[in-house]
Design a protein around this nucleic acid. Structure first.
Lengths: 335, 335
DNA sequence: CGCACAATCGTTTGCGTCAACAATTGCAAA
DNA sequence: TTTGCAATTGTTGACGCAAACGATTGTGCG
């Protein structure tokens, strides 16, 4: 299979390589190759199962029909869903996906991005883990790049993410509206933009109800299960227990839940829970979790649309294109 | 960034393209290029941020350092975990991953595989969705291919999957040991090998206890939430309710759980639940789910090891290499 | 002083494809 | 008959890299 090249077909049919090339890339009519020849060549190509060598074609055309995608952890459902949407959407336009899992490691990220450049991908979609945009900005000069979920201040790199501020703000307002007064937020990586925005939204919402005695505290330092566990333990063993916990990620949430359960505290009777992110399982938990669901599909769709526009040139290279999509509050029974 | 080629560096340094090539691919010493020259060229390459064009290199070397991976649905945690393990493992050997999501569609699978071939991947790992091994067998003649999870009878295509029969058998035995007597299994896609094996294991286990009055029934036809819901409704509204349900996948399980909850039946008091597959969430459900956990990481590891051996030739092309890994019963509190 | 042979680097080709130029017909109009 | 032009197909480089094959020095030795 697939040992044939334009050359071998040329030999077998007697036509020149370029005629074969033209016919098989659908330009036969355009170059006025006779119907008879077209049919003959097409038949031969089908017979021997010819598949054009994309490597050779890529070298010549400087276009690989490949998009590089990096995510911090593909086994995180949020990123898996993102990848799923991106892959499906970009496939429609004939693109293949080179996927790299950076495992939240800056070095892996660098490796992956360099590899993408070396492989001449037509574009890059990335959920960056690095704290600096330097490398990405260098790369963006020669390849279209779109960031997702996490982004940087003071750069023009295009990005799409959910509006973490408003999502966090709305969730906190919701808790307050439900009557909760001592709310504690367990945050993730301090330096990441989404986390900063979530903290800001949380604190602003609390501040706007300060006169009704609402207090908000924040602690934690990682989007991990362990962080959820240790912070829950800490705050619940203090003498000023909160009456509601806001988990800034799914993993944190699981840590919170398992710890509360071990302490025999019931949700939402003893303490209310609300979380960021969404997951199929949330609706099947006991109780179902109220959460701020990020519009993953939409984010992926928008990001790829921007990328495609940058590739075909309909979006100026200099043009700043940064968008935040409002997340949705999904009601469970945990508050 | 990355506009330099061996040629431009050659012009700037005055050395020939081949000298540059040798130095930059680490063969300077081997070709007795002088230390001075090596250093000079290396410096220049670093200065201009030279990255070898992998497309051109691929064309010449007939090796792309790329592995193609197809999964039926990357947003399914089982496959996401699989991909995660594979990517991490293959990265160690310098391979990049072309990921295709076939969305359980045979045509997508064909597209993806053809694309892999055209892109001259060095190897293919696939969770096939097609019911016929024809295409894969054709491809396997020119590119190393390893199947995962699903496989075909009567082929020599190498595969790695969990031992569905023994897993299913053990789970059923466990239920019986716990005292359950009327067990119903909700199955997935009838034609898929894993499903067939699970059914066989289930029925064999039941049969081996037929004299103690154990009965086993099977129904359903898809690894989906809907199937879980409709089958649960059906069997629970009959006048011969089972006392235990065996869900053959996570999605089926969720359907079962939601339906039971809507019927206000409590687990495991009113009815016991056991499931195939594993998931982080299982431990945080209420109650935690007892399940047959497939050794995803191990499967991925083994599959890539086999693939690597096929690539470097240390595994004969003709040699049959098919392995089934025993899954583990993970105890929750749902039985 | 000439020659062998190491030490050091260069020339050229080809991987498979596409595309810019050419080339070859035939046939109608002048 | 010549000219012109449409209708067909061919030739010939790149693309950037690696490797096969050479080429040029210089040094030690007989």
């Amino acid at each position: 299979m697939n040992k044939d090249t334009l050359h071998t077909i040329s030999q077998r049919t007697g036509y020149s390589v370029s005629t074969i090339s033209r016919v098989l890339s659908g330009k036969g009519r355009q170059f006025r190759i006779s119907e008879r020849t077209i049919e003959l060549i097409t038949k031969e190509a089908e017979a021997c199962n010819y598949i054009p060598d994309q490597i050779a074609r890529g070298l010549k055309m400087k276009k690989t029909s490949t998009i590089g995608l990096t995510v911090p952890a593909i086994d995180n459902p949020f990123f898996a869903n993102l990848a799923s949407g991106l892959i499906a959407h970009l496939k429609k336009y004939g693109y293949n996906i080179l996927l790299a899992d950076t495992m939240e490691d800056e070095r892996n990220e660098k490796d992956a991005l360099m590899s993408f450049v070396a492989r001449k991908v037509d574009g890059i979609v990335t959920v960056p883990v690095s704290s600096s945009p330097d490398l990405l900005e260098r790369i963006a000069k020669s390849v279209p790049v779109v960031l997702i979920d996490r982004y940087f201040e003071n750069t023009d790199l295009p990005y799409v993410c959910s509006d973490n501020y408003s999502g966090s703000f709305a969730a906190t307002k919701y808790l307050i509206g439900k009557g909760y007064r001592r709310i504690h937020a367990i945050q993730g990586v301090l330096t990441s933009m989404p986390n900063k925005e979530r903290v800001r939204g949380f604190l602003d919402a609390v501040a706007s109800h300060a006169d009704s005695g609402v207090t908000g505290t924040v602690s934690g330092n990682s989007f991990s299960l362990e962080n959820g566990i240790s912070e829950t333990l800490r705050i619940m063993s203090g003498n000023d227990r909160p009456d509601a916990i806001f988990a800034f990620s799914t993993t944190i949430l699981l840590g919170v839940i398992s710890t509360l359960r071990r302490m025999s505290l019931s949700i939402p009777d003893d303490i209310a829970i609300i979380s960021f992110d969404d997951n199929l399982f949330f609706d099947y938990m006991n109780p179902p979790i109220t959460r701020v669901a990020q519009p993953v599909a939409e984010i992926g769709q928008l990001a790829s649309d921007i990328l495609l526009k940058m590739i075909d040139g309909s979006l100026e290279r200099g043009e700043v294109c940064q968008m935040q999509i409002p997340p949705k509050l999904v009601h469970g029974e945990s508050c």
